[in-house]
Structures are given as structure tokens and as C-alpha cells.
Deep mutational scan, measured.
Amino acid sequence: MEQATVKWFNAEKGFGFIERENGDDVFVHFSAIQGDGFKSLDEGQAVTFDVEEGQRGPQAANVQKA
């Protein structure tokens, strides 16, 4: 698992990007966020996640709020 920071997340559209420590951004979809209830992330929030290869490149999976 990697630890990184949420760059931005649009709760209405259900997706955003996580900024990795190496500077690369990773796409995150609300369905990858672990937990119950409304799944959203806040800008600047610390998260841990795995990286999977998606249809359009790397994307976050198993996202957990740190």
C-alpha cells in the first residue's frame, strides 16, 4: 500500500486524483473508497491505497482514509 494526499475530489461526479509522493497523480473513483456510507474524499486528506492498471492507466484501489 502507498500513502499519499488527495489532490482533488469531486463528490458530485464521484472521482478525483491522489497525488503520489513521486509527484505522479493517480485517478480515484468513489467505488474504490473503503467504508460505509457516503464515499467521498477531501482535498489534502491523507490516504492509503493500492494501484491497479485501469482502462486509462493507473488508478487507485482499496482507498482508506489515513
Rank of each mutant, 00 (worst) to 15 (best):
N10E: 02
V26T: 04
S31I: 05
E52T: 12
K13R: 11
I33F: 05
F27Q: 03
G54C: 09
D36I: 12
T48N: 07
L41M: 04
G54W: 07
D25M: 15
G44T: 03
F9A: 02
E19G: 11
Q55C: 15
V51M: 11
G16N: 02
G54A: 07
F27R: 01
A46P: 11
G35Y: 08
F38Q: 06
G37F: 07
Q34W: 10
S31L: 08
G54I: 03
F38M: 08
Q55D: 11
K7N: 03
K65W: 09
A66E: 09
V47S: 02
D25P: 08
T5C: 14
K13F: 10
K65C: 10
G16A: 05
V6A: 01
Q59G: 04
V6H: 01
G35A: 09
A61D: 02
Q3G: 08
D25W: 13
D50Y: 15
V6Y: 01
A66Y: 12
G54S: 10
N22D: 10
Q55I: 14
D42F: 15
E43G: 13
R20M: 09
E43Y: 13
N10C: 12
V6G: 02
D42G: 10
G23W: 04
A61E: 05
G14H: 03
E12W: 13
T5G: 03
D42A: 14
A66M: 15
G44S: 05
L41P: 03
E2T: 11
S31C: 08
P58F: 11
Q45G: 07
F30Q: 04
E52D: 06
T48P: 01
F9K: 00
E43P: 15
D42L: 14
H29S: 04
I33V: 07
A60T: 00
F17C: 08
G23A: 09
R56G: 09
G54P: 03
R56Y: 14
A60Q: 01
K7A: 03
F15D: 00
A46F: 13
Q3Y: 15
W8F: 07
Q3H: 13
E43R: 15
G57S: 06
T5I: 13
Q55G: 10
M1G: 12
Q59A: 07
G37Q: 06
N62H: 09
K7F: 06
V26G: 02
G35R: 01
K65Q: 09
Q34M: 13
V26N: 00
Q3P: 08
I33S: 02
Q45R: 05
S40G: 08
E19A: 15
A61Y: 10
G16H: 02
E12S: 13
K13T: 06
P58V: 10
Q45M: 11
D36V: 12
G16L: 04
A11Q: 11
F30G: 00
W8T: 01
G57I: 03
F15R: 00
F17G: 00
D24E: 13
V26A: 01
G23E: 08
Q34E: 09
V47I: 08
F9C: 05
V26W: 04
E21P: 13
G35C: 11
G16C: 08
S31W: 08
D25K: 10
Q55F: 14
P58R: 10
N22H: 11
E2S: 11
F27A: 00
A66F: 12
D42S: 14
G54T: 13
S31H: 06
D50K: 13
R20H: 05
D36Y: 12
D24C: 12
K7L: 05
E52W: 11
G16Y: 04
W8E: 02
K7Y: 03
F9T: 00
F49Y: 08
A11Y: 11
S40Y: 13
K39C: 09
E43M: 14
P58L: 12
R56N: 11
N62V: 04
T5W: 14
S40V: 11
S31G: 05
I18C: 05
E53A: 10
V6E: 00
G57C: 06
V51N: 03
D42P: 07
G37R: 04
G35W: 10
L41W: 04
G44I: 03
Q64H: 12
G35V: 09
I33W: 03
E43D: 10
Q55V: 13
D25C: 14
A4P: 03
F49I: 05
D25Q: 14
D36W: 11
G16Q: 03
E43H: 15
T48S: 10
F27P: 00
T48G: 04
N62W: 08
G23M: 09
G35D: 08
R56T: 07
Q34C: 12
A32H: 05
R20A: 04
D50E: 14
K13Q: 07
S40P: 02
A11P: 12
F30R: 08
F30P: 00
F38C: 11
T48H: 09
R56E: 06
D25F: 12
Q64A: 10
Q34N: 10
V47G: 00
S40L: 08
K39V: 07
F15I: 07
K7D: 00
V63N: 01
Q55H: 13
A32E: 03
V51E: 04
A46G: 09
A11R: 14
S31K: 07
I18W: 04
D36F: 12
M1L: 11
N22V: 10
G23D: 07
T5M: 10
E21H: 12
F15T: 02
I33A: 02
F30T: 03
F27N: 00
N22K: 11
I18L: 15
K13Y: 10
E43W: 13
V63K: 01
F17D: 00
A60K: 01
G57A: 04
D42M: 15
G44V: 03
T48K: 09
I18E: 00
K39D: 04
T5V: 13
L41F: 05
E53P: 11
E21C: 14
T5D: 04
F30I: 06
P58K: 10
A66V: 15
D25H: 13
D42I: 15
V6F: 00
K65S: 09
F9I: 00
Q55L: 14
V63E: 01
S31P: 00
A46I: 14
V51Q: 05
K13H: 08
A4V: 03
T48F: 13
G54H: 08
G23R: 08
D50P: 02
G54M: 07
K7C: 08
N10W: 09
A61C: 11
V28G: 01
V26Y: 04
F9Y: 09
F27I: 02
E43I: 14
L41C: 06
Q59E: 08
N22W: 10
G57H: 04
E43K: 15
D24H: 11
G54N: 06
A46V: 14
G37L: 06
V26C: 06
H29F: 09
N62E: 03
V6N: 01
L41R: 00
V26L: 15
F30N: 02
Q34R: 10
F17M: 08
E12I: 13
T48C: 11
R20K: 08
R56P: 07
V6C: 07
G57Q: 04
V26R: 00
K7I: 05
Q55E: 12
N10I: 05
Q64N: 11
D24P: 15
V63Y: 00
E19C: 15
